[in-house]
């Protein structure tokens, strides 16, 4: 069972104060910490678990600048066997379809039974790359996967639907899955894993080598003309309670009594 996993590096934003650059086109990333996209982390873990149970090889692929090799090394240390980095040059301002093109060209010659991506990125949240890839490859797929059983040449998965419901679907291999968080409990990276990475050479490629023209990727290839970022307006929304902690709690208690009918 050979598995390809697409991973990406994203800035950690939950605890961060985000700022937008002057042009309003991008967030300022200098002070942010970067890590593997949360969904991708689950995807890597799932791939490694499947490999451990069914043998084979896990190849991780990322599209990004040199620093993004960090997430590849993390995935290798978790148990992936090979890694490919597609250099970002030329892909700047690509839309999800452009990114998927790059990944497609890089993975189409890698023999695999299963292709995994995260269900979405925690940054742009496009939730497109995995399935766009599946379509380009012409293989069956399932998104939002929260459970996987491998059969004989087939795979059965649980997809997460709304309202606490899942559906069970199966399909022949090779297939593509986008992985939802909670499917497993991702492992920590070990020192042994890190040492193993020494022996692995990350393959590097770029848009030129992949035969992509400027017209297909980057801002030219993108269907988006421009993007203007802004911070969601403040001031509307909640009435922020002020005062000492005790005063605030007094007010809150009153609100709960009034609105909730609590005695």
């Amino acid at each position: 069972m050979n598995i390809v996993v697409c991973v990406k590096q994203v800035p950690e934003v939950t605890d961060a104060e985000l700022e937008i650059n002057k042009e309003g086109a991008e967030i300022l990333k200098e002070d942010l910490e970067f890590d593997i996209n949360e969904w991708d982390n689950y995807a890597v873990e799932e791939a490694v678990r499947i490999k451990e149970a069914h043998h084979g090889k896990v190849t991780v692929v990322t599209l990004g600048d040199e620093d993004c090799a960090d997430v590849l090394r993390t995935a290798l240390a978790m148990g992936a066997d090979e890694a490919i980095r597609i250099d970002e040059q030329g892909f700047e301002f690509s839309d999800a379809a452009g990114i998927a093109q790059g990944l497609y060209r890089a993975v189409r010659d890698v023999p695999f039974d299963l292709l995994l991506t995260g269900a979405q990125g925690s940054d742009d949240g496009w939730a497109q790359v995995g399935l766009t890839l599946a379509e380009l490859l012409g293989i069956p797929y399932a998104s939002l996967v929260v459970g996987v059983e491998i059969g004989e040449g087939t795979i059965t998965v649980h997809r997460e639907l709304e309202s606490n419901t899942q559906e069970k679907v199966d399909m022949p291999l090779p297939a593509a899955l986008t992985i939802q968080t909670g499917i497993n409990n991702p492992r920590y990276v070990s020192i042994m894993g890190i040492q193993k990475v020494r022996r692995i050479e990350i393959k590097e490629t770029d848009s030129e080598e992949l035969g992509l023209s400027e017209a297909e990727i980057g801002s030219q290839g993108s269907r988006v003309d421009s993007q203007k970022l802004s911070l969601p307006p403040v001031g509307e929304g909640a009435d922020i309670l002020t005062g000492s902690l005790d005063e605030i709690c007094e007010k809150t208690a009153q609100i709960i009594r009034d609105k909730g009918g609590v005695m």
Partner: peptide, 17 residues
């Protein structure tokens, strides 16, 4: 080095987790 940064990240994840 890259490997040293990997070690830092791995240790931090484990410890902070």
């Amino acid at each position: 080095s890259k490997e040293q940064r990997d070690i830092v990240r791995a240790a931090r994840k484990f410890a902070s987790g």
